[in-house]
């Protein structure tokens, strides 16, 4: 198949899936088929049916409603953690590239320090210290996005600084701050969009992981990670309980990955 056509299909599929999950998160804030926290012991562990499309769990809660409501936490945590990385990491990278010398060294060695920590372990440490919850999960995941964005930004910015047009801007009397904002940053937008999509998908996985360990989104708010951990003991009894949240995470990440590779600029001739 034509590569350009397959790229377009991949981009469309990725954008479609991503948009569907975000819509789901939005809709779930107003409406779900059942109350995701509504316990109905009598109707527990029912298999998928016309009333409960995805069945019910061990407390009789509607799995579809829980999946939908979980999307909110997942999208929210991924969004804010990526945002934190962007807002702090990109300026750090721009400064490091614009001011070489000790400023650059200081920023980048700080990043190395952050990178050296196993991220999940530190996230556990953070939540242990400040208590579990969605906000702390955001911060824990977001902190590790800072060095990622700082490095990507610095690398690409350094390349732009060597181009003649940056030199021309200096001849036109512009300072490093103005050149960073007017010339460097706009030329990095595509790259940063791709990186943000990748970090977003990693954020989705990380949130699921933290919730699985019980230190992410707290009950009664449902989350895919905790649904998976709850379903673990019941796999023999109700295998579909693990299937749906697992599928949700996998499909969302697949969509984001397709989207990021579709957005990536094609290799130039």
């Amino acid at each position: 198949m034509n590569t350009a056509a397959s790229r377009r299909i991949g981009l469309a599929a990725g954008a479609g899936i991503t948009l569907a999950f975000i819509m789901m998160a939005v809709v779930a804030s107003f409406w779900t088929p059942y109350d995701p926290a509504g316990i109905d012991i009598a109707g527990k562990l029912s298999s998928p049916s016309a009333q409960h499309w995805f069945g019910t769990d061990q407390l009789g809660r509607d799995v579809l409603s829980m999946i939908m409501a979980s999307a909110r936490g997942s999208v929210g945590v991924a969004f804010f953690s990526t945002g934190l990385g962007l807002v702090l990491g990109v300026p750090l990278g721009l400064i490091a590239a614009a001011r070489s010398g000790w400023v650059d060294e200081f920023i980048m060695r700080g990043n190395d320090l952050l990178f050296a920590f196993p991220s999940l372990l530190l996230a556990i440490l953070l939540t242990a210290g400040f208590g579990p919850g969605a906000l702390n999960a955001c911060i824990a995941i977001g902190v590790f996005n800072i060095p990622v964005f700082a490095r990507v930004t610095r690398g690409a910015a350094l390349r732009i600084w060597t181009q003649d047009f940056s030199m021309a801007a200096r001849v036109a009397g512009k300072g490093p701050l103005r050149i960073s904002v007017e010339h460097v940053l706009p030329n990095l937008l595509t790259l940063l969009t791709v990186q943000a999509t990748i970090q977003f998908s990693l954020g989705v996985v990380a949130e699921a992981g933290l919730s699985y360990l019980g230190i992410g989104v707290q009950p009664p708010t449902p989350s895919w990670g905790r649904m998976l951990s709850d379903a673990q003991t019941l796999t023999a009894l109700a295998p579909s309980l693990a299937l749906f949240p697992g599928l949700a995470v996998a499909l969302f990440v697949l969509g984001l990955t397709l989207l990021s590779s579709g957005l990536r600029p094609q290799r130039e001739r």
Partner: peptide, 23 residues
Amino acid sequence: FQDPYASFDPQWSVERVVAEPFH
């Protein structure tokens, strides 16, 4: 400068490029 391909910010129009030294 030497390289006519690297001398301009690819996202800027000719007018903006030429007017840059007005800064």
